[in-house]
């Protein structure tokens, strides 16, 4: 007994992204939600192009984020500069592997996996793929939830620089990778917000 599921769009109805109200669109492409006043549209505007633009920018920033130093530490005249991977290796060499694992996953793996996940979903929508729609939706939602944890290393550098600089012999200064890294996190968040998961479900068998 298979029931036929229709998209709201086919019935001239759109769900408000902000309050969830089902809104009758009355031949308009975009109207104001009668309940919360936010803009309601069938699909996010120019979703795929905007998502790609943010995603490509994020990919580019990911390179300096990993090759440039994240932090300069000056202690008694000696300055050392650490990239993210060097920071991970530092913890590993001190036998602190749980911490090394946390930083490696949050700073190196997570942004990369998130970018790959969004790129995969974007490509499959552009190719008109009809397979594994539920899995793709779940992948997108997972990327949405986990993305912010990549901010970890920026917070660590920010805190250490802020806490230690007050007239101590040791100073900690942020490196150029910090801003690149923040750009990766923010741009992937924009990419994920620009993408409309409903496009996954708009693809139908021919």
């Amino acid at each position: 007994m298979a029931s036929i599921i229709v998209s709201a769009k086919e019935r001239g109805i759109a769900g408000c992204h902000t309050c969830g109200q089902a809104v009758k669109m009355q031949n308009y492409a975009q109207i104001e939600c009668p309940r919360c006043g936010a803009e309601v549209h069938y699909r996010k505007y120019d979703s795929i192009n905007r998502a790609w633009a943010f995603l490509i920018a994020a990919f580019i920033m990911y390179i300096p984020a990993n090759t440039e130093p994240m932090m300069h530490t000056t202690s008694l005249g000696n300055t050392s500069a650490d990239t993210i991977l060097e920071g991970v290796i530092y913890f590993l060499s001190h036998g602190d592997w749980p911490l090394a694992l946390v930083i490696f996953s949050a700073s190196v793996m997570l942004p990369l996996l998130k970018m790959i996940a969004i790129a995969y979903v974007l490509i499959s929508v552009q190719r008109g793929s009809v397979s594994r729609k539920t899995e793709k939706t779940n992948l997108y939602k997972l990327a949405e939830i986990l993305g912010k944890w990549s901010m970890l290393d920026i917070f660590v550098v920010g805190l250490m620089a802020g806490l230690v600089q007050l007239g101590a012999l040791t100073t900690i200064a942020p490196g150029p990778a910090c801003i690149a890294f923040a750009a990766v996190v923010i741009l992937t968040m924009f990419a994920e917000m620009a993408f409309d998961p409903k496009l996954i479900w708009d693809q139908v068998d021919k």
Partner: peptide
């Protein structure tokens, strides 16, 4: 009972 549009897949239910 309310008419609801899925936020993720647009299914009307």
């Amino acid at each position: 009972d309310i008419l609801f549009v899925c936020h993720e897949c647009d299914a009307l239910q």
